[in-house]
Amino acid sequence: MNLHLLNRSPFSSRIHDDVLNAMGPEDQLLLIEDGVNGALDNAEQHLAGLEGRLFALREDLESRGLLGRCAENVIVVDVDGFVALTEAADKTVSWF
């Protein structure tokens, strides 16, 4: 199982398409930096089919005022959670 890290907003780039294309059925996706825009309710259309495997970094959500605006299927984790996800994964893949 791989952990994918995405730091681009799905509203301003198409990189998330490449990420989804490269993700296995068990792989997890963590949204960081501008990637957390993908946690918005309306972004679900861009990141479909990741139930239970879609995470967003709390610190980046907070700084953007987005913590209370996340879609239900997004699991919010802090930096410690980031580390835990990294530990649990075979490797991480960065998308930027």
Partner: peptide, 19 residues
């Protein structure tokens, strides 16, 4: 416009790296 509209949301804070 684009992601620029995110600048107008309430509740923004200093970034985790001090931005």
């Amino acid at each position: 416009t684009g992601d620029g509209v995110m600048a107008l949301l309430e509740g923004q804070q200093v970034g985790p790296l001090g931005q």
